[in-house]
């Protein structure tokens, strides 16, 4: 029999590993802002704690209960936005969403200040799984809420 995921490639090794062993899970005692995301359809839940250093995000921790896609998305998001300014993180969030709904060619990278998606590109195959896109976006919903409480 063929391998379990061949044509899908959705469950990239990186995603499975981060779902199983997240590197940025937990809480921040000294969080400057917090945000929550909930998906009433499946009960998935994530909570994001953000700590700022001047204008930059210095640390992020998440507490996530959900599927592998949601868990890995939270963990890789935390990794990717650490060190970014709030506008940069918001730009990245938009770019991440665009990647999930658009074909790659139609996502113009005009803003050179936006950091690259990097490992977040592992989620690109979600395009073919519309019903699961919200799983990957849930942590970003929580981050957006957290960043809306940050005044810089």
């Amino acid at each position: 029999m063929n391998s379990l995921t061949d044509s899908g490639a959705l469950y990239d090794r990186l995603i499975v590993d981060r779902a199983r062993t997240p590197l940025h899970a937990g809480r921040l005692e000294q969080a400057d802002a917090q945000g929550e995301g909930k998906n009433p359809l499946c009960g998935d839940k994530t909570r994001v704690d953000v700590q700022m250093a001047d204008t930059h995000i210095s640390q992020i921790r998440h507490q996530t209960r959900g599927c592998a896609i949601c868990l890995a998305a939270a963990d890789l998001m935390a990794e990717r936005v650490t060190g970014l300014t709030v506008p940069q993180a918001q730009d990245l969030s938009r770019r991440f969403s665009a990647m999930l709904v658009n074909e790659p060619a139609s996502t113009p990278d005009t803003n050179t200040n936006t950091p690259a998606l990097g490992p977040l590109e592992a989620f690109a195959p979600l395009r073919a799984h519309r019903a699961r896109i919200r799983c990957a976006e849930l942590p970003w919903v929580a981050l957006k809420e957290a960043l809306s409480h940050v005044d810089v």
Partner: peptide
Amino acid sequence: DVHPHDIATLLDRNGIAVRAGHHCAEPLM
């Protein structure tokens, strides 16, 4: 600990259609 949504998506990659979620019965869940 495999989430039902992951089960359903991976089954689907193999042609198998099952339902995953709360099945419109949240209080029962």
